[in-house]
Design a protein around this nucleic acid. Structure first.
Lengths: 248, 248
DNA sequence: GAATGTCAGATTGTCGGACAATCTTACATC
DNA sequence: GATGTAAGATTGTCCGACAATCTGACATTC
C-alpha cells in the first residue's frame, strides 16, 4: 500500500515537464552493502553455506556492524541467506526440494501471466517482446553466461508482468532471485547457460497468434525441462563435492 | 532454501520419541516487538498513516532504538508499514489500487490452489475442511469480528496450501497480511464482518464433488464480491475522514 | 509579492564501543 | 562413555554520539 518508494519522483510543484532524466542516487549504505552481497552471491564468489560474519564483513567493507546486520537481514528475507539463531547467517544452499518448489511456484505465476495475454495492456505485451529481443540479441552477441541468465530470467518476469499485478511481479522476482542463486551455485561448475532463445521465441509466437492454451502447454513443458536441468546439475555438483570430500 | 528456522526441532540425537510437547520460546526481542506492532496495527490501535517514531517506541516499549529499528524493518518488508527515507516509517494506508491488486493477486494464487484439488495431498484437503469447520464454528459461537476475520482468511490460505508449495503459501500469507491491515482500517468504522460461512461451505462442496471448474467460477465471483465490499467500505471511510476534516 | 536563502528543531542514518547470552570446541571428571 | 567445565568466538541487545536530511518558519532579495 502506498507503494513506490522508488527513486524517480514526479513532484506536482514543478509545472513544466522539465528535468526529465535527472536522477539522484538515494540509496542508503545498507542498500549498497546488500547489493554488493547479492552480486557476490550471484557471481559465485560466495559459495553456498559460506558463513557471513558480521564483524569480518563490516571491517572488510568499511562500514559498521549494524549496517552489515541490516543488509544481512535483507538477504535473509529475500531467501538468499539463512539465519540460525546465535549462529549467524550464511549463504543459502539450494536443495532439490527448494528447486522443485521454485519451479512449481513460478509455473503458477507465469501461467497466470500467459493466460492474461489477451487482456493484458499493450505496454506489458510490448515489454515481453523487448525483453525477448534483448535476450536473443545477447545470445547472438555471444554474451557471457551471467548476462544470458539475467536476460533469460528477465523474460520470465515479463511474462508475469502481463498480469498487471505489482504484487505478483514482486513474488516472481523473489522466486527468480532464489533461482539465480541456485544457478550461480550450479554454474560454478558448468560455466554455460543453455541457449533457449529459440524456445522462448516459439512461446511468444504462440501468444502473438492468441493461442493461449498452446502457450500454456508449451510453458509447462519448458519449465519442466528447466527444472530437470537444474536438478541434474545440482546432483552433479553434489557428487563432485562428495568425491572431493572423500578424497581429502 | 534450507528453510525452517522454526521453533520445533526434531533432533536426530535424541533416540526416543520422548519430550513431545516441550517447546522453548526462542523468539528474540525484535520478534516480540514486531508482534506487538502487528497486533496494534491489526487491532486498529494504530491508524493508517500514523508515524512510528523510533525513539518514542523504544522508550515506550522499554527496548533500545536499534531493536525497534529492526522490528520496523520487518513491518516494512511485510507491507504493513512504509518507510520514506529520512522521514521514518508510518503505518501503511490502503488505497483502492492496492486493494484491487491484492484481490487480483490472491485470485491467481487461490485459483491455483483450487485447480490442484484433485491432485492435492490428503492432508492439504483435510486442512481446508478443518479451517472451514473452525470458521463456521466461530460464526455459530458468535465470535468477535476479529476472530472471524482470522478464521476467514485462514481458510483462504488453506486453499493455496492445496498447491503444496511453501513459497506460494508464503506469498499468499503476505497478501493476507496486507488485506488484514485494510480490513482493520475499514472495520474501525463498521465493526462487523460478513458471515460468509455458507458461501465457503458451498465452495468446499463443489470441490468435494470434484467440480473444479465450478469451484473456480465460484471463487472468481466470491473474490469479486469481497473486493467490491472492501472498496465500498474504504470509500465510506474516506468520506467520513473528509467530512471530519472539513468540520474541524 | 513571489522566489530564494537561511536558520533551528526534529528525526533518521550511521557509527563505535560495550556487555550479556549463547554456541562450539576441547578438555577434565566421574 | 556420559557428564561437567572452561575458553574462545559470535551473535543479540544496548547505549551514546554525530552527521545527514527533512520540515517549517523566518528573513532576504528582486
Amino acid at each position: 500500500m502506498t507503494a513506490s518508494r522508488t527513486s524517480t519522483q514526479d513532484d506536482p510543484r514543478v509545472d513544466p515537464p522539465l528535468y526529465a532524466g535527472l536522477t539522484v542516487d538515494h540509496s542508503s549504505t545498507v542498500d549498497r552493502v546488500a547489493d554488493e552481497l547479492r552480486r557476490a552471491v550471484f557471481d559465485g564468489e560466495l559459495e553456498s553455506g559460506t558463513p557471513l560474519r558480521e564483524v569480518a564483513l563490516a571491517s572488510s567493507l568499511g562500514v559498521s556492524r549494524p549496517t552489515v546486520r541490516e543488509a544481512l537481514a535483507l538477504l535473509v528475507t529475500e531467501g538468499l541467506a539463512v539465519r540460525e539463531p546465535h549462529r549467524g547467517v550464511s549463504v543459502a544452499s539450494p536443495d532439490p526440494d527448494s528447486v522443485r518448489d521454485l519451479c512449481r511456484a513460478r509455473l503458477v505465476l507465469e501461467d497466470a501471466g500467459v493466460r492474461h495475454w489477451p487482456q493484458a495492456e499493450a505496454a506489458a505485451r510490448e515489454r515481453v517482446r523487448t525483453t525477448l529481443a534483448a535476450y536473443t540479441g545477447a545470445v547472438r552477441a555471444g554474451a557471457g553466461y551471467r548476462e544470458l541468465n539475467e536476460r533469460h530470467l528477465a523474460f520470465h518476469v515479463s511474462l508475469v508482468e502481463l498480469t498487471g499485478s505489482p504484487r505478483l511481479v514482486a513474488a516472481q522476482e523473489s522466486l527468480v532471485r532464489e533461482l539465480r542463486l541456485a544457478l550461480a551455485q550450479v554454474e560454478r561448475i558448468r560455466r554455460n547457460a543453455h541457449d533457449q532463445a529459440d524456445t522462448h521465441a516459439e512461446l511468444l509466437a504462440l501468444l502473438e497468434a492468441d493461442d493461449v492454451p498452446g502457450a500454456q502447454a508449451f510453458l509447462v513443458r519448458h519449465l519442466a525441462d528447466a527444472e530437470e536441468a537444474i536438478l541434474a546439475a545440482l546432483d552433479l555438483r553434489a557428487e563432485e563435492a562428495a568425491s572431493a570430500g572423500t578424497a581429502r
